[in-house]
Simulated assay, not measured.
Amino acid sequence: MITHFQFKTLFENKEMPGWHFSFYYKKQKFTGIYHQNGDIQWTSEQPLDTDLDQVKEQVHELMLFHVYDK
């Protein structure tokens, strides 16, 4: 489970899509960039392959809730 999820806009112009995000998963911090099309660009080591799909799904759900469902 993802904990301590945080995000902020990627650009000063908040109308432009793109967000920095960070969270902890299994006691390890992960960071990345979430693009408007749902692509994730990891700026830290990415989660293990066995966890990657589950983590990406959780990030998508959190971004949808916090950014698009305001």
Rank of each mutant, 00 (worst) to 15 (best):
F5N: 07
P17R: 06
L10A: 14
W19H: 15
H20G: 08
V55H: 00
Q36I: 01
F7R: 01
N37T: 12
M1A: 08
Q6C: 11
Q58M: 10
Q36G: 11
V67G: 04
Y24D: 12
E12W: 03
H35F: 13
K70Q: 15
P47V: 06
P17L: 09
K29R: 12
K29L: 10
T9K: 05
I33T: 03
W42G: 12
E57T: 09
H4F: 07
E57L: 06
Q36Y: 10
Q36A: 13
L62A: 05
F21L: 04
M63F: 05
N13F: 03
F30T: 05
T3G: 07
H4T: 08
T3L: 04
L52F: 15
T50G: 09
F23Q: 00
D53L: 12
K8P: 06
N13R: 07
H20T: 14
D49F: 05
L64F: 13
V67Y: 02
T9N: 13
F21K: 04
D51H: 11
D39S: 02
Q6D: 13
I40P: 05
F21A: 01
W42C: 09
N37C: 04
Q46T: 03
E61C: 00
D39G: 05
D39T: 04
E12F: 00
Y25D: 11
M1G: 15
H20M: 07
D69H: 11
Q36N: 13
T50M: 11
Y25W: 05
D69V: 05
Q58H: 05
Y34F: 15
H35K: 11
G38P: 04
M16P: 00
K14H: 14
Y24L: 14
N13D: 15
H35M: 10
K8H: 14
Y68C: 02
D49M: 02
H66G: 02
F11V: 02
E57P: 04
Q58L: 01
G32E: 08
W42M: 08
E12V: 01
E45W: 11
E15R: 03
H66N: 12
D49L: 11
Q36K: 07
H4S: 13
I2D: 10
